[in-house]
């Protein structure tokens, strides 16, 4: 067993266990913490795939920014004081169906994807490094990047306008 394999097993196990714990905890703060743990383990998996930039971006964006926002909202809304929603049995059946469909999709993708394509291994190893991503983003995909930036700017201005009205 190589070191990489052992690390993969460890990270994958943390990922799986934390995601199960995340959806089964009743305290939303604990759920959010398990989601953060899940993100951390996921970024470990990215590191094993030599995608250092994606790994760090995962931590900075998801664990560092988005989840902090989540935690804030949960803390300020104080959900422990709210009544728990009575679970509708029909919704439960729907949830099982959706979960099953997603599971089948994942299994299909895993078994149908070609794993024998070793010729592009070098290219795929470099795909997650910051140099490759930077070059691709600012040459080939410059238009989508700029468009996304513009959309985000518009959203920020929208948020400002919404927030400002309250003070008047």
């Amino acid at each position: 067993m190589s070191l990489e394999f052992i690390l993969f097993i460890v990270f994958a196990a943390i990922c799986a266990v934390s995601s199960v714990l995340m959806i089964t905890r009743s305290n939303p703060i604990i759920s959010a913490l398990f989601l953060i743990l899940n993100f951390a383990a996921l970024s470990g998996l990215y590191l094993l795939l030599h995608a250092q930039f994606i790994a760090v971006a995962q931590v900075i964006v998801y664990a560092g920014a988005i989840m902090v926002l989540f935690l804030f909202v949960i803390m300020l809304l104080r959900p422990e004081k709210e009544k728990l929603l009575a679970i509708n049995p029909r919704l439960k059946i729907l949830a099982y169906v959706v979960a099953f469909i997603v599971f089948v999709q994942l299994v299909y993708i895993i078994f149908m994807s070609s794993t024998t394509d070793s010729g592009s291994m070098d290219a795929s190893i470099k795909a997650g490094t910051i140099e490759t991503i930077g070059m691709e983003l600012f040459s080939k995909y410059i238009l989508p990047v700029e468009a996304a930036g513009f959309l985000l700017l518009a959203a920020t201005i929208g948020a400002l306008v919404l927030a400002k009205k309250k003070f008047e």
């Binding site: 760090v56 971006a57 931590v59 900075i60 664990a63 560092g64 902090v68 910051i130």
Partner: peptide, 11 residues
């Protein structure tokens, strides 16, 4: 980036 990532976790 590693430093920035850890700082953001420090929150």
């Amino acid at each position: 980036l590693y430093v920035l990532a850890l700082t953001s976790v420090g929150v």
